[in-house]
Amino acid sequence: MSQSAAIANPALVNLAQDIFAALIEKHDYQRQLCAALETESDFAQRQAIFQRLKLELRAHEAAEERHLYVPVMQHDEGLDLSRHAITEHHEVDELLEIMEDDGASEEKWESTCVTLIEKVRHHLDEEENKFFKQARTILDDELQQRLGTLYQAEHDAFAKAHADD
C-alpha cells in the first residue's frame, strides 16, 4: 500500500475539544503527511500527498488565524506572538505556491518540498512549545473550549469547500 493510501484524514473530532487539543490533532496529521512526502518514492504519489497536505495546511491556517491568533492578539502580551506565527503561515503559503506552479521543474518542486517540510515542522514545534504555553495563560478555559469548537467547524467547512481545488 502506498503512503498516499495509508494516511487517512482524521474523521471529525469531538467538537468539545479545546482549541489546543484540536490544533494538536491537526498538527499530528500534518506531521504524518510530511513524513509520507519524505518516504514516498513515486513522484505522482508524492504530488497526491502534497495536494492533501496543501488542503490541510490552508484549512488549518484559515481556522487557526481566526480562532486562535486573533483572540490572542487582542491582548498586548499576545501581539508579537501572533504576528510571528502569521508570518510563518505566510512563508508556508509562498512555498505552496512554488510547488503548485505547473511550470516548476521536478528538481525545483523537490527542493521546495524539503524546505516546506522543514518549515512546517519548525512552525508546529514552535507553536506547541512556545505559542500554546503563552496562549493558555491569556485565554480562559471557557474561551479555549469555545474556540476549539469554532476552529474545528471552520477547518472542516474550509476543507470541504476547497477539496477539489
Score class of each variant (00 low, 15 high):
residue 78 G to S: 04
residue 91 E to R: 07
residue 137 T to Y: 03
residue 1 M to G: 09
residue 136 R to V: 04
residue 8 A to S: 05
residue 35 A to S: 14
residue 85 A to D: 06
residue 31 R to V: 11
residue 123 H to M: 06
residue 13 V to P: 10
residue 164 D to L: 10
residue 74 Q to E: 09
residue 163 A to D: 03
residue 12 L to S: 13
residue 100 E to K: 13
residue 143 L to A: 06
residue 86 I to Q: 12
residue 125 D to S: 11
residue 120 V to S: 03
residue 20 F to N: 10
residue 109 W to D: 02
residue 163 A to F: 04
residue 60 H to S: 00
residue 125 D to Q: 14
residue 126 E to H: 11
residue 51 Q to N: 09
residue 72 V to G: 06
residue 122 H to F: 15
residue 1 M to W: 09
residue 36 A to R: 04
residue 68 L to A: 15
residue 141 D to A: 06
residue 156 D to N: 11
residue 138 I to E: 00
residue 24 I to W: 14
residue 146 R to F: 09
residue 77 E to A: 05
residue 8 A to C: 02
residue 13 V to K: 15
residue 14 N to H: 10
residue 46 R to V: 07
residue 135 A to T: 07
residue 50 F to W: 09
residue 61 E to A: 09
residue 14 N to V: 05
residue 29 Y to M: 06
residue 159 A to P: 01
residue 150 L to P: 08
residue 41 S to M: 07
residue 46 R to D: 12
residue 119 K to W: 09
residue 45 Q to V: 13
residue 63 A to V: 06
residue 59 A to T: 03
residue 163 A to L: 05
residue 105 S to I: 02
residue 149 T to C: 08
residue 67 H to I: 14
residue 150 L to R: 12
residue 146 R to V: 11
residue 45 Q to A: 14
residue 90 H to P: 01
residue 147 L to V: 05
residue 59 A to Y: 01
residue 111 S to L: 12
residue 28 D to W: 11
residue 20 F to R: 14
residue 68 L to C: 13
residue 8 A to Q: 07
residue 24 I to R: 15
residue 35 A to C: 07
residue 158 F to L: 04
